[in-house]
Amino acid sequence: MMMKGLYEAHLPVSDLKASISFYEKLELTLAHENERVAFLWIEKGKSWLGLWKADISTIPYHPATRHVAFQIETSSIEQIKEWLMEKGISIHPMFGFSEEQQPLVLDNPPQFHAAIYFIDPDGNLLECIAPLEIDAGEHHEMMTFEDWERKKHPFID
């Protein structure tokens, strides 16, 4: 296969310095910066995020233009909320699920994912997402990760 993964994604921002500072809290590393754009490594040499100083940062949010999902290890899905909150980043209510109810499990067959949502200083929607199960063959409603775990392991408490 020729395609190996996603190398870069880009977001519009109003203040490069403030945005760089925010993304450095997420442990991204500044690779390049000038007066109109900054690139931060997500994983050095493998993927980065471009932040562009642009007036379009004021356009209403839409996932087609202002959304990035960071993949995390499935084993860290239960720690990610605390990790974000320790950095002063609050969880963003999503799909009718409150901050307290996240992480949640997305109903996107054939791949089920656990996800948690938050926003950057410009209101760009960010997500930490972890793969759970692929080709499960079943459809389910969105649910909390806690409910997913209970459903998958009904005898463990």
Results as ranks from 00 to 15, higher is better:
residue 117 Y to L: 02
residue 108 N to Q: 14
residue 29 T to H: 05
residue 127 E to T: 02
residue 74 T to L: 11
residue 34 N to P: 10
residue 48 W to Q: 08
residue 59 I to E: 15
residue 137 G to C: 09
residue 46 K to G: 00
residue 89 I to A: 07
residue 100 E to M: 00
residue 120 D to K: 08
residue 47 S to A: 15
residue 16 L to P: 02
residue 26 L to T: 03
residue 98 S to K: 00
residue 59 I to R: 15
residue 76 S to C: 10
residue 16 L to V: 02
residue 104 L to F: 04
residue 30 L to H: 06
residue 52 W to H: 11
residue 22 F to N: 01
residue 5 G to L: 07
residue 118 F to Y: 01
residue 120 D to V: 05
residue 64 A to Q: 14
residue 8 E to K: 15
residue 111 Q to H: 13
residue 131 P to G: 12
residue 21 S to N: 12
residue 125 L to Q: 06
residue 132 L to F: 10
residue 95 F to K: 05
residue 133 E to K: 14
residue 130 A to Q: 03
residue 65 T to K: 11
residue 126 L to I: 10
residue 69 A to C: 06
residue 42 I to S: 02
residue 91 I to A: 01
residue 103 P to L: 04
residue 84 L to E: 09
residue 57 S to D: 10
residue 28 L to W: 03
residue 4 K to T: 14
residue 43 E to G: 08
residue 33 E to G: 10
residue 95 F to E: 07
residue 91 I to T: 01
residue 106 L to D: 06
residue 87 K to G: 06
residue 72 I to N: 06
residue 97 F to T: 02
residue 42 I to C: 07
residue 81 K to M: 04
residue 15 D to E: 09
residue 108 N to W: 15
residue 93 P to R: 00
residue 6 L to W: 13
residue 134 I to S: 15
residue 19 S to W: 00
residue 129 I to Q: 03
residue 108 N to L: 14
residue 26 L to F: 00
residue 37 V to M: 08
residue 25 K to L: 12
residue 101 Q to W: 00
residue 34 N to Y: 10
residue 29 T to R: 05
residue 4 K to H: 12
residue 14 S to D: 10
residue 110 P to S: 10
residue 74 T to C: 11
residue 79 Q to G: 13
residue 64 A to G: 14
residue 70 F to A: 03
residue 11 L to H: 03
residue 115 A to K: 07
residue 113 H to G: 07
residue 88 G to N: 10
residue 11 L to S: 08
residue 66 R to Y: 03
residue 107 D to R: 09
residue 48 W to I: 02
residue 67 H to K: 05
residue 12 P to L: 07
residue 87 K to A: 08
residue 15 D to P: 04
residue 97 F to G: 01
residue 43 E to R: 12
residue 92 H to D: 00
residue 12 P to E: 12
residue 125 L to F: 06
residue 102 Q to A: 00
residue 131 P to L: 11
residue 82 E to M: 12
residue 47 S to P: 11
residue 17 K to F: 09
residue 40 L to T: 02
residue 36 R to K: 15
residue 98 S to E: 02
residue 130 A to L: 04
residue 85 M to E: 14
residue 110 P to T: 10
residue 24 E to G: 04
residue 121 P to T: 06
residue 128 C to E: 05
residue 60 P to T: 15
residue 47 S to W: 03
residue 81 K to P: 08
residue 35 E to H: 14
residue 9 A to P: 09
residue 16 L to I: 01
residue 33 E to C: 15
residue 73 E to I: 07
residue 135 D to I: 09
residue 105 V to Y: 03
residue 119 I to H: 04
residue 19 S to G: 02
residue 120 D to L: 11
